[in-house]
Simulated scan of single mutants.
Amino acid sequence: MTMHAWVGYGGTFDPIHCGHLAVARAVRDALGADVQLVPAADPPHKDATHADASHRARMVELAVAGERGLHVDRRELARDEPSYSIDTLREVRAEVRDATPIVWVVGADSLAQLHRWHRWRELFDLAHLLAAGRPGFSLDPAGFAEIDAGLADAIGRRLQPLDTLLDAPSGALALLPMEPPRTESSTDIRRRIADGEPWMSQVPPPVAAYIDRHRLYARPVSA
């Protein structure tokens, strides 16, 4: 694994599941770099989390334990204010050399909403974006014109091949198709747990044990 790039994969991980791990491994292998999984404290562009930050971070730690090149970065959990990706990337850029490539991994579903993110255009001043395939969300750049013209323009100007992403410190967008796309969904896993349906196969075994032990996502027992 190279130490000449900082690669972050942010998310609520509520809970982390096998699809998240598959993306992290694919990014690690494609870039030949360590990947930092960055649990969010309170992401403004998503609904409130269901498990508190300490539980979510611990599940990520359990999921990546023993995984080559995968680590947990808790920096966002220490913030009292809302957790914005731009702030995380600004922190990282201040910690690494100006010439160090920074890559921020997002899902194709998040890429389709990028124009709604806080100061989204400034992300490219600090880092590259790497979009991983998600079921139901096309990575075809032409399709983004129907979502937002400014987003489509940014994607069209910044898109470059994945194998050239680490040639510069920031400013580009690359695509990482996941074929077939992983179908796991944290929302569906939480629903399955609450409804008593099978779910354990969709998360790493240590995470399943942790969820079960702490009764996370279960419906409250009626008195």
Rank of each mutant, 00 (worst) to 15 (best):
A41G: 15
D167H: 13
A53K: 11
I193T: 04
T12F: 03
A209G: 10
R79T: 04
D153W: 09
R58N: 09
H214M: 06
L216S: 07
D34A: 13
L175K: 10
Y9F: 15
L37D: 02
R90K: 12
V207L: 01
G133N: 10
L216A: 07
G66D: 14
Y84M: 01
L165M: 12
A24N: 01
L216I: 04
P161D: 12
A142H: 13
M200W: 04
G133S: 12
Y9N: 05
R93M: 11
G8Q: 06
L37W: 04
G8D: 02
I211R: 02
G107L: 05
A65W: 14
A33F: 01
S54F: 14
H17V: 00
T88P: 11
A57H: 10
V38S: 03
R213G: 04
P135Q: 10
V64F: 12
H118T: 03
L173V: 10
D34L: 07
G196L: 08
P141E: 08
D98F: 07
D42L: 07
I155V: 14
M1Q: 05
E179A: 11
G32W: 12
V106S: 03
R90D: 15
P180G: 04
I189V: 07
L114P: 00
R75L: 11
W117C: 02
P44D: 04
A40G: 10
Y210M: 03
D212E: 15
R116P: 02
E67P: 06
P135V: 05
L216K: 05
H45A: 04
A127V: 13
L37H: 05
R56D: 11
T88N: 07
P135K: 05
A57K: 08
A152G: 01
E122F: 10
L216V: 03
L159Q: 12
E95R: 13
R56N: 10
A208G: 07
L173A: 02
R157V: 00
L21Y: 08
L114T: 07
S222K: 13
A48C: 01
D148H: 15
H115F: 11
D14L: 02
F137E: 06
A131I: 09
A145H: 13
H115E: 03
R74A: 14
T187G: 10
R157G: 09
Q160M: 15
A40E: 06
